[in-house]
Amino acid sequence: MKVRLEWFTIRPEKPPHPLAVGLSYLMVFGVLAIVFQVAFVRLQYDWNWSVLGEYRTLFLHGWGTTLGLSVASLGLSLLLGVGLALAGQSRWLPLRSFHRLTVEVIRGTPLLVQILIFFYVVADAYGIQNRYVVGVLTLSLFSAAYIAEIVRAGIESVGASQWESARAIGMSDPQIYRHIVFPQAMRRALPPLAGQFVSLIKDSSLLSMIGIAEFTKNARDVNSLTFSTLESYLPLAIGYLVLTLPISWWTQRLERSLHFET
Protein backbone atom coordinates (compact mmCIF):
# COMPACT_ATOMS: atom_id res chain seq x y z
CA MET A 1 0.00 0.00 0.00
CA LYS A 2 1.25 3.42 -0.90
CA VAL A 3 1.19 6.23 1.65
CA ARG A 4 -0.69 9.14 0.13
CA LEU A 5 -0.25 12.76 1.12
CA GLU A 6 -3.99 13.49 1.12
CA TRP A 7 -4.51 11.17 4.09
CA PHE A 8 -2.84 13.82 6.20
CA THR A 9 -4.77 16.81 4.91
CA ILE A 10 -7.50 18.12 7.22
CA ARG A 11 -10.73 18.86 5.39
CA PRO A 12 -13.62 20.72 7.00
CA GLU A 13 -16.22 18.19 5.85
CA LYS A 14 -14.34 15.11 7.02
CA PRO A 15 -12.29 14.60 10.22
CA PRO A 16 -8.98 12.76 9.71
CA HIS A 17 -8.85 9.00 10.24
CA PRO A 18 -7.56 8.00 13.71
CA LEU A 19 -4.85 5.93 12.03
CA ALA A 20 -3.66 8.99 10.14
CA VAL A 21 -3.56 10.95 13.41
CA GLY A 22 -1.54 8.21 15.11
CA LEU A 23 0.82 7.88 12.17
CA SER A 24 1.29 11.64 12.05
CA TYR A 25 2.32 11.77 15.72
CA LEU A 26 4.67 8.83 15.14
CA MET A 27 6.37 10.57 12.21
CA VAL A 28 6.89 13.82 14.11
CA PHE A 29 8.16 11.92 17.13
CA GLY A 30 10.49 9.92 14.88
CA VAL A 31 12.00 13.01 13.29
CA LEU A 32 12.60 14.64 16.67
CA ALA A 33 14.09 11.43 18.02
CA ILE A 34 16.52 11.25 15.12
CA VAL A 35 17.60 14.88 15.61
CA PHE A 36 18.37 14.30 19.27
CA GLN A 37 19.87 10.85 18.75
CA VAL A 38 22.32 12.30 16.25
CA ALA A 39 23.20 15.04 18.72
CA PHE A 40 23.83 12.55 21.51
CA VAL A 41 25.90 10.29 19.29
CA ARG A 42 28.08 13.23 18.20
CA LEU A 43 28.49 14.23 21.82
CA GLN A 44 29.68 10.71 22.61
CA TYR A 45 27.94 11.02 25.93
CA ASP A 46 28.77 8.32 28.40
CA TRP A 47 25.38 7.30 29.81
CA ASN A 48 25.25 6.16 33.41
CA TRP A 49 21.67 5.20 34.13
CA SER A 50 22.55 3.39 37.34
CA VAL A 51 22.23 6.80 38.97
CA LEU A 52 18.50 6.58 38.50
CA GLY A 53 18.19 3.34 40.45
CA GLU A 54 20.61 4.41 43.11
CA TYR A 55 18.85 7.67 43.93
CA ARG A 56 15.30 6.64 43.07
CA THR A 57 13.96 7.45 46.53
CA LEU A 58 15.28 10.99 46.21
CA PHE A 59 13.60 11.34 42.80
CA LEU A 60 10.35 9.84 44.01
CA HIS A 61 10.26 11.95 47.17
CA GLY A 62 10.95 15.07 45.16
CA TRP A 63 8.27 14.20 42.63
CA GLY A 64 5.79 13.48 45.42
CA THR A 65 6.59 16.78 47.09
CA THR A 66 6.11 18.67 43.83
CA LEU A 67 2.82 16.84 43.29
CA GLY A 68 1.64 17.78 46.78
CA LEU A 69 2.73 21.41 46.46
CA SER A 70 1.09 21.65 43.04
CA VAL A 71 -2.24 20.14 44.05
CA ALA A 72 -2.46 22.33 47.16
CA SER A 73 -1.45 25.49 45.27
CA LEU A 74 -3.73 24.69 42.36
CA GLY A 75 -6.80 24.50 44.58
CA LEU A 76 -5.89 27.47 46.72
CA SER A 77 -4.88 29.66 43.77
CA LEU A 78 -8.16 28.94 42.00
CA LEU A 79 -10.05 29.97 45.14
CA LEU A 80 -7.95 33.09 45.68
CA GLY A 81 -8.02 33.94 41.98
CA VAL A 82 -11.81 33.80 41.74
CA GLY A 83 -12.08 35.82 44.97
CA LEU A 84 -9.64 38.39 43.62
CA ALA A 85 -11.54 38.58 40.32
CA LEU A 86 -14.80 39.15 42.20
CA ALA A 87 -13.12 41.86 44.28
CA GLY A 88 -12.30 43.53 40.97
CA GLN A 89 -16.00 43.47 40.03
CA SER A 90 -17.11 44.85 43.39
CA ARG A 91 -19.12 48.04 43.74
CA TRP A 92 -16.97 48.94 46.72
CA LEU A 93 -13.95 50.98 45.63
CA PRO A 94 -11.36 49.74 48.19
CA LEU A 95 -11.98 46.14 47.06
CA ARG A 96 -11.33 47.18 43.49
CA SER A 97 -8.16 49.00 44.50
CA PHE A 98 -7.03 45.90 46.39
CA HIS A 99 -7.61 43.80 43.27
CA ARG A 100 -5.76 46.18 40.97
CA LEU A 101 -2.80 46.71 43.29
CA THR A 102 -2.36 43.01 44.09
CA VAL A 103 -2.56 41.95 40.46
CA GLU A 104 -0.13 44.59 39.22
CA VAL A 105 2.48 44.09 41.97
CA ILE A 106 2.42 40.29 41.82
CA ARG A 107 2.47 40.09 38.04
CA GLY A 108 5.14 42.75 37.76
CA THR A 109 7.72 41.27 40.13
CA PRO A 110 9.76 38.04 39.94
CA LEU A 111 8.38 35.04 41.81
CA LEU A 112 11.86 34.48 43.21
CA VAL A 113 11.77 37.83 45.03
CA GLN A 114 8.26 37.18 46.31
CA ILE A 115 9.28 33.81 47.72
CA LEU A 116 12.29 35.28 49.49
CA ILE A 117 10.33 38.22 50.95
CA PHE A 118 7.44 36.06 52.07
CA PHE A 119 9.66 33.45 53.65
CA TYR A 120 12.36 35.56 55.28
CA VAL A 121 10.31 38.65 56.13
CA VAL A 122 6.55 38.13 56.27
CA ALA A 123 6.35 34.52 57.45
CA ASP A 124 9.16 35.05 59.92
CA ALA A 125 7.56 38.18 61.37
CA TYR A 126 4.14 36.54 61.72
CA GLY A 127 5.52 33.32 63.14
CA ILE A 128 4.71 30.89 60.35
CA GLN A 129 7.39 28.23 60.81
CA ASN A 130 6.40 25.61 58.25
CA ARG A 131 8.22 26.30 54.98
CA TYR A 132 5.81 24.11 53.01
CA VAL A 133 2.88 26.23 54.17
CA VAL A 134 4.74 29.41 53.21
CA GLY A 135 5.64 27.85 49.88
CA VAL A 136 2.08 26.90 49.02
CA LEU A 137 0.77 30.31 50.13
CA THR A 138 3.32 32.23 48.06
CA LEU A 139 2.85 30.09 45.00
CA SER A 140 -0.95 30.30 45.30
CA LEU A 141 -0.92 34.06 45.66
CA PHE A 142 1.40 34.40 42.67
CA SER A 143 -0.77 32.21 40.48
CA ALA A 144 -3.98 33.78 41.80
CA ALA A 145 -3.01 37.14 40.29
CA TYR A 146 -2.90 35.56 36.83
CA ILE A 147 -6.02 33.47 37.41
CA ALA A 148 -7.87 36.58 38.58
CA GLU A 149 -7.20 38.23 35.22
CA ILE A 150 -8.24 35.11 33.31
CA VAL A 151 -11.45 34.83 35.33
CA ARG A 152 -12.14 38.56 34.95
CA ALA A 153 -11.87 38.29 31.17
CA GLY A 154 -14.27 35.33 31.30
CA ILE A 155 -16.76 37.19 33.47
CA GLU A 156 -16.63 40.27 31.27
CA SER A 157 -17.20 38.18 28.15
CA VAL A 158 -20.71 37.41 29.39
CA GLY A 159 -22.77 40.16 27.80
CA ALA A 160 -25.13 42.73 29.29
CA SER A 161 -28.12 41.05 27.64
CA GLN A 162 -27.49 37.89 29.67
CA TRP A 163 -27.48 39.99 32.84
CA GLU A 164 -30.64 41.76 31.81
CA SER A 165 -32.61 38.60 31.07
CA ALA A 166 -31.40 36.99 34.32
CA ARG A 167 -32.47 40.07 36.26
CA ALA A 168 -35.81 40.06 34.44
CA ILE A 169 -36.39 36.54 35.76
CA GLY A 170 -35.91 37.93 39.26
CA MET A 171 -32.52 36.39 40.03
CA SER A 172 -30.24 38.00 42.61
CA ASP A 173 -26.65 38.92 41.75
CA PRO A 174 -25.13 35.86 43.51
CA GLN A 175 -27.63 33.61 41.69
CA ILE A 176 -26.74 35.22 38.37
CA TYR A 177 -23.02 34.65 38.98
CA ARG A 178 -23.60 31.05 39.97
CA HIS A 179 -26.08 29.95 37.30
CA ILE A 180 -25.41 32.25 34.35
CA VAL A 181 -22.04 34.01 34.48
CA PHE A 182 -19.66 31.41 35.91
CA PRO A 183 -20.72 28.50 33.68
CA GLN A 184 -20.24 30.66 30.58
CA ALA A 185 -17.08 32.35 31.86
CA MET A 186 -15.61 28.94 32.74
CA ARG A 187 -15.94 27.73 29.18
CA ARG A 188 -14.00 30.71 27.87
CA ALA A 189 -11.45 30.69 30.69
CA LEU A 190 -10.53 27.01 30.44
CA PRO A 191 -7.78 27.12 27.80
CA PRO A 192 -5.82 29.95 29.48
CA LEU A 193 -6.46 28.39 32.90
CA ALA A 194 -4.91 25.12 31.75
CA GLY A 195 -1.84 27.05 30.64
CA GLN A 196 -1.68 28.82 33.99
CA PHE A 197 -1.92 25.54 35.93
CA VAL A 198 0.94 24.08 33.89
CA SER A 199 3.04 27.17 34.65
CA LEU A 200 2.18 26.84 38.33
CA ILE A 201 3.50 23.29 38.45
CA LYS A 202 6.76 24.32 36.83
CA ASP A 203 7.07 27.46 38.95
CA SER A 204 6.95 25.30 42.07
CA SER A 205 10.60 24.48 41.31
CA LEU A 206 11.55 27.92 42.61
CA LEU A 207 10.48 26.83 46.09
CA SER A 208 13.83 25.03 46.30
CA MET A 209 15.16 28.52 47.11
CA ILE A 210 13.72 28.28 50.62
CA GLY A 211 15.01 24.76 51.16
CA ILE A 212 11.97 22.77 50.13
CA ALA A 213 13.11 19.37 48.87
CA GLU A 214 10.96 19.29 45.78
CA PHE A 215 11.60 17.58 42.47
CA THR A 216 13.97 20.08 40.86
CA LYS A 217 16.05 20.52 43.99
CA ASN A 218 16.47 16.77 44.42
CA ALA A 219 17.44 16.30 40.79
CA ARG A 220 20.00 19.07 41.19
CA ASP A 221 21.33 17.34 44.30
CA VAL A 222 21.70 14.07 42.41
CA ASN A 223 23.58 15.91 39.70
CA SER A 224 26.00 17.52 42.09
CA LEU A 225 26.60 14.19 43.82
CA THR A 226 27.13 12.13 40.66
CA PHE A 227 27.99 14.62 37.89
CA SER A 228 25.53 12.72 35.71
CA THR A 229 23.78 15.80 34.42
CA LEU A 230 21.48 14.31 31.80
CA GLU A 231 20.61 11.27 33.89
CA SER A 232 19.45 13.67 36.60
CA TYR A 233 17.60 16.18 34.46
CA LEU A 234 15.94 14.00 31.80
CA PRO A 235 13.90 12.15 34.45
CA LEU A 236 13.05 15.59 35.80
CA ALA A 237 11.56 16.64 32.46
CA ILE A 238 9.57 13.43 32.18
CA GLY A 239 8.36 13.74 35.77
CA TYR A 240 6.99 17.23 35.06
CA LEU A 241 5.33 16.02 31.84
CA VAL A 242 3.56 13.30 33.83
CA LEU A 243 2.06 16.09 35.94
CA THR A 244 1.26 18.60 33.19
CA LEU A 245 -0.04 16.41 30.35
CA PRO A 246 -3.09 15.16 32.32
CA ILE A 247 -4.07 18.77 32.93
CA SER A 248 -4.06 19.47 29.20
CA TRP A 249 -6.05 16.33 28.45
CA TRP A 250 -8.53 16.93 31.23
CA THR A 251 -9.24 20.56 30.26
CA GLN A 252 -9.60 19.62 26.59
CA ARG A 253 -12.24 17.06 27.54
CA LEU A 254 -13.99 19.52 29.84
CA GLU A 255 -13.96 22.10 27.05
CA ARG A 256 -15.71 19.71 24.71
CA SER A 257 -18.38 18.80 27.25
CA LEU A 258 -19.05 22.49 27.93
CA HIS A 259 -19.28 23.24 24.24
CA PHE A 260 -21.94 25.71 23.13
CA GLU A 261 -22.00 28.42 20.51
CA THR A 262 -23.17 31.92 21.14
Binding site: Q162, S165, A168, I180, P183, Q184, L258
Partner: peptide, 13 residues
Protein backbone atom coordinates in the same frame (compact mmCIF):
# COMPACT_ATOMS: atom_id res chain seq x y z
CA UNK B 1 -43.44 39.36 35.63
CA UNK B 2 -42.23 37.70 32.45
CA UNK B 3 -40.09 39.48 29.85
CA UNK B 4 -39.36 38.45 26.26
CA UNK B 5 -36.59 40.26 24.40
CA UNK B 6 -36.02 41.00 20.74
CA UNK B 7 -32.77 39.02 20.65
CA UNK B 8 -34.28 36.07 22.62
CA UNK B 9 -31.54 36.26 25.29
CA UNK B 10 -31.70 32.57 26.08
CA UNK B 11 -28.91 31.19 28.25
CA UNK B 12 -26.58 29.54 25.69
CA UNK B 13 -25.09 27.00 28.09
Amino acid sequence: LGVVFQAFNLFPH
